[in-house]
């Protein structure tokens, strides 16, 4: 993979995805050893530019970069929702002087990491932009699913929840499709747009479709406030994984995934976190390996 940037899944070839997944495996094996570091990125600088607060993703990238022996700088940016694209451009101009090799960006505006990538010679990694893409999440999701289903072709994954506003839904559905997995969406009619994917607005119908895994999206509080659905209680009753539904998933051997952080009592009940086929903690661990693979695979164009 000779790419400079890692901005979305749409533009990746299937072979590149498989290479990234394969490459992540030895990195994961490393985690069980006493020395968890490799010198792959020694002397390189990774700059974290998070315009949206996210401790989990930031830490995951930080650990990934450090395990590759890179120097990590966390640039302090205002986490205000009014950060304009314009001021981002000024920031990038300023940062050029720091000569970072990699810039990891998260921003509330769809397309902002792509704009930054055009402005800098550093490799830009999209750590989530608006409702557009979250490609490293998609990679770790695919990696996690491949661990339980080494043959992914023909498997079915049901993505549940706020598909409309979710960058995770977009990137993860795209990567799974490229790997031959069949994807369907399910959720309240107001939160599941018409796309090329099969669409359910009824949980039981969706389950009859026979998914091998149910991927729960995080439901944002502000969607209820904007009346996309009436209340968290009703959401949980109609679309959440209740104890009763968990029983059925268990009977049918369906895996459960979630990008985190979870909303207990909304998209899932407490029991899900103790469920034997719940892959949430594996996803967190695999996130580090997947991000190491991405950092390792990119080629900054610095002179």
């Amino acid at each position: 993979m000779a790419r400079k940037d890692f901005l979305d899944i749409v533009s990746l070839e299937r072979s590149e995805i498989i290479q990234l997944l394969d490459q992540a495996e030895p990195f994961k094996d490393l985690f069980t050893r006493s020395v968890k570091k490799v010198p792959a990125l020694k002397g390189k600088t990774v700059l974290m530019l998070f315009y949206e607060a996210s401790t989990r993703t930031l830490s995951s990238f930080e650990v990934a970069a450090k395990r590759l022996s890179a120097d990590v700088t966390i640039f302090d940016v205002p986490h205000s929702s009014v950060t304009k694209g314009e001021s981002v451009r000024d920031t990038i101009d300023t940062l050029q002087a720091m000569r970072a090799d990699y810039i990891v960006v998260r921003h509330r505006l769809s397309g902002q990491p792509a704009a930054i990538a055009r402005q800098t010679n550093a490799s830009v990694i999209n750590a989530g932009d608006g409702a557009h893409a979250h490609p490293t999440q998609a990679l770790l999701d695919a990696f996690t699913l491949r661990e339980v289903y080494p043959e992914m072709e023909g498997r079915k994954v049901l993505i549940m929840g706020d598909v409309l506003h979710s960058r995770v839904a977009r990137s993860t559905s795209t990567i799974l499709t490229k790997l031959g997995v069949e994807v369907a969406f399910c959720g309240p009619g107001s939160l599941v747009p018409q796309t090329r994917f099969r669409r359910f607005t009824n949980y039981d119908e969706a389950l009859r479709w026979g998914p091998d895994a149910v991927y729960l999206l995080r439901v944002q509080k502000e969607r209820q406030e904007a009346s996309f659905y009436p209340s968290d209680r009703e959401y949980h009753a109609v679309f959440g994984i209740t104890e009763e539904r968990l029983k059925r998933l268990s009977d049918e051997g369906v895996y459960v995934m979630h990008p985190g952080p979870v909303n207990r009592g909304v998209e899932l009940c407490d029991g899900v976190l103790d469920y034997e086929r719940c892959l949430i903690s594996q996803q967190v661990e695999n996130g580090i390996a997947a991000r190491m693979s991405v950092l390792y695979g990119l080629k900054p164009q610095l002179s």
């Binding site: 769809s110 397309g111 608006g130 409702a131 557009h132 893409a133 960058r167 977009r170 796309t195 090329r196």
Partner: peptide
């Protein structure tokens, strides 16, 4: 439509 969905913009 599909383009706004793909680009992640309302």
């Amino acid at each position: 439509g599909p383009v706004s969905y793909r680009l992640g913009i309302q």
